[in-house]
Amino acid sequence: MTLTHLNQKGEASMVDVTDKDITDRTARAQSAIAMSAEAFEQLKAGNNKKGDVLATARIAGIQAAKKTADLIPLCHPLALTKVQVDFELDEAGQTVNIQAFCRLAGRTGVEMEALTAASVAALTIYDMCKAVDPAMVIGPTRLQEKVGGKRGHWTLEQSAGGKS
């Protein structure tokens, strides 16, 4: 297998995507953050001292997707056309489940942007709730689905890595 991010000398190199076809590309990623009952109840009730945790985490996730090329070496700067970050509260597990979705028409995928959005949203929740529960646990963070490009449609369920 040839590594795509190395040049002929074995040096790090950003892949040239100039000749790739422009296709509609999407990616969905997930993360989660589990916390104490007290932190979860504060978040759910919206009375965290730092403000609206989920609204702040949503904005942070969207901003992070837009800044992925600044954070991850060799990622291409992308003109994202859609970034969405959603939350689901799991009361039984005292967990916030995070879903991130990214879309564009371009020459390279948006997996890293979706993963970055989900990760930074989780980190923002941690930051805003850490005074109540510094032992919160983040994860798993993983790609759920990608569409577009040469490989077409991929889902976590069809991958061996999708087994929990």
Rank of each mutant, 00 (worst) to 15 (best):
S164R: 10
L115V: 08
G162P: 14
N7G: 13
L74Y: 10
V120C: 07
R107C: 07
I62C: 11
L71Q: 09
Q63K: 10
M112I: 12
A121R: 08
L71F: 12
A60W: 07
S13N: 09
H5Y: 14
D24A: 09
S159P: 08
E111H: 05
D24N: 05
G61S: 11
D24G: 05
A45T: 03
E111C: 04
H153K: 01
S119P: 11
H76K: 10
Q30A: 01
P77H: 12
D133W: 13
A60E: 04
G161P: 00
S159R: 09
A118H: 01
D86C: 13
L43P: 06
S31P: 04
K146C: 13
I138K: 12
L143D: 01
R28G: 07
E11P: 12
Q99W: 14
G161T: 04
G46Y: 06
G93L: 15
S164V: 06
D127H: 03
T141D: 10
V137E: 04
I72C: 00
A118E: 00
L3G: 07
C75P: 03
A57C: 02
D133T: 11
I62P: 02
G109F: 07
A57Q: 00
C129R: 05
G10C: 06
G148L: 14
V147G: 02
G46A: 02
T108A: 04
I33A: 00
L115K: 09
A57D: 01
V147T: 03
K49A: 10
S164T: 07
M112P: 07
L78P: 06
V85I: 15
I59A: 03
C75G: 07
G162K: 13
P73K: 04
L74E: 06
